[in-house]
Amino acid sequence: MELPFFYLFSVGIIGASILMVTRANVIHAALLLVLTFFFLSGVYVLAGAEFLAVVQILLYAGGIMVLYLFSIMLMSVDVAVRLRQFHRQTIFAMATAVLLALEIWMVLSRGTSYPAFKSFGWGIGATPGNVEALGSVLYTQFLFPFEVASVLLLAAMIGAIVLAKRTIDR
């Protein structure tokens, strides 16, 4: 039952991603990235990670894409569309892609015997829901990383205000 949906979402992710990186118009690429996020969210639901699926849409499609679009609007889209891309990063990008593929293959080939899977006491379906499972470990077992994250958010906000305000005041 779940397999056809997995293929549907996977084809959607790959198709939208390929379309995204091949668009000349950066606004089209941004909208295709939103589509990729929605398909990715579907895969998260299939994997039993419902919280991540909601976060994917709320934060990435809703928040980070707004930031991307504002960043695009800060520069001249008209000029950017007409420019020919010279980045000279082909070799670097290919090396990164090969490295990433190797990493994914390493994790997948080991399956559930991978160390990260063993460190958790609970598996999918063992708890009433993904949000409850996440909440029960995030605020107890992973309390310190959580508090560090809040400091990081504060730093990010102060950094954004200092940088943007200096530009505005000038």
């Binding site: 928040g63 504002f70 949000v131 959580f146 958010l153 954004a160 205000i161």
Partner: peptide, 25 residues
């Protein structure tokens, strides 16, 4: 081209968005 003020608003929105997400679980 749009003003950089929009970028600041988006940045603040994301930070508080992330913090709100943590309140749900």
């Amino acid at each position: 081209r749009f003003s950089v003020k929009f970028f600041l608003v988006a940045m603040l929105f994301i930070v508080f968005d992330v913090e709100t997400i943590f309140l749900f679980p």
